[in-house]
Design a protein around this nucleic acid. Structure first.
Lengths: 160, 160
DNA sequence: ACGCATTAAATGCGTTTGCATCTAATGCGT
DNA sequence: ACGCATTAGATGCAAACGCATTTAATGCGT
């Protein structure tokens, strides 16, 4: 690994970091405002929906997601509390837990996916092209506070 | 935006998510174990070091970073508590705060950058190539717990 | 059958984060 | 000069995370 290659790697990492921050922030906000769920919850719903199977083992879900085991456990707990999925015991392994989407969960996922796609289309495009990451071109991005054009009401943030 | 394009976008977003989780987790862990700082702290040190200037305004730092204003404020507070930088009042605007690296901060940044480059070289490579994201190829990644080969002691985690 | 390492999930705990708010300093219009 | 919107940074607060630990169920060797 040459020094120049390491620098290039660091530069690319910064791009990923910037991209992740920008998109995940917009996505989290949009999902929260429109549907009352966060990115992790959406991701869990999404994996469950796309699996096709009616019931999925927690551990299976965790294997394909990026969350720690404890975070997944709590995410599922939140989703259950919200009535979006049900936990059930697994007949062949009584340690394991099956999770299955409720009708409401499936419906919300459908709607949330529309939101997700819209946010991605709006915020996840300037990535493959140049990204023109020269110094001194910071467009005043201060963490999260863009998207003044959001059509959702502001202020229902702490009410999950 | 066609439906297929939206799906492709969602697929790419998952790749970014997976990449970010994998790398940031390894990076955070390595920086923490080897130097007692997290990613945000490193990023702040890194920006300050590369700026060339001896003093940087907080707001300036915040403009190019991905943290919220409050998170940056606390990150800087942590760095100051650790003796890695100093905060000082700004003569021409007494609201603003200058931050400057201490010698110790500069030295730690140098060492931490080596760690960072090593981690990036190890975990941030499989990204541009295919990434072969077909379903069912999950390599058992369960959040964070890989890197059993880490040479650092495990268990000094809560001691910042 | 019994003991023991292993695995699934839940939970206590400390840390970090973002949002909202607060304080203080600026500057601009009148 | 005075008032008031604006800006910089700090802080209270609640949410979410990861680590370590706990509880419970499995399975494997003897």
């Amino acid at each position: 690994m040459t020094d120049a290659a390491a620098g290039e790697l660091a530069r690319r990492w910064r791009e990923v970091l910037a991209c992740y921050s920008r998109v995940s922030c917009a996505l989290d906000r949009a999902l929260q405002d429109a549907h009352g769920i966060g990115m992790s919850e959406f991701e869990a719903l999404d994996r469950m929906a796309e699996s096709g199977r009616p019931k999925v083992k927690m551990h299976q879900l965790g294997a394909e997601m990026y969350l720690s085991q404890s975070a997944l456990s709590r995410t599922v707990a939140r989703l259950e509390r919200a009535g979006l999925l049900q936990r059930g015991m697994c007949p062949d392994d009584r340690r394991a837990v099956f999770v299955s989407l409720t009708d409401e969960g499936r419906a919300l996922h459908e709607r949330a996916r529309t939101t997700q796609r819209a946010v991605l289309a709006e915020h996840f495009l300037p990535d493959d092209p140049a990204e023109h990451s020269g110094p001194g071109d910071a467009p005043g991005y201060d963490g999260c506070d863009r998207a003044e054009d959001a059509t959702a009401p502001r202020g229902a943030r702490t009410a999950r």
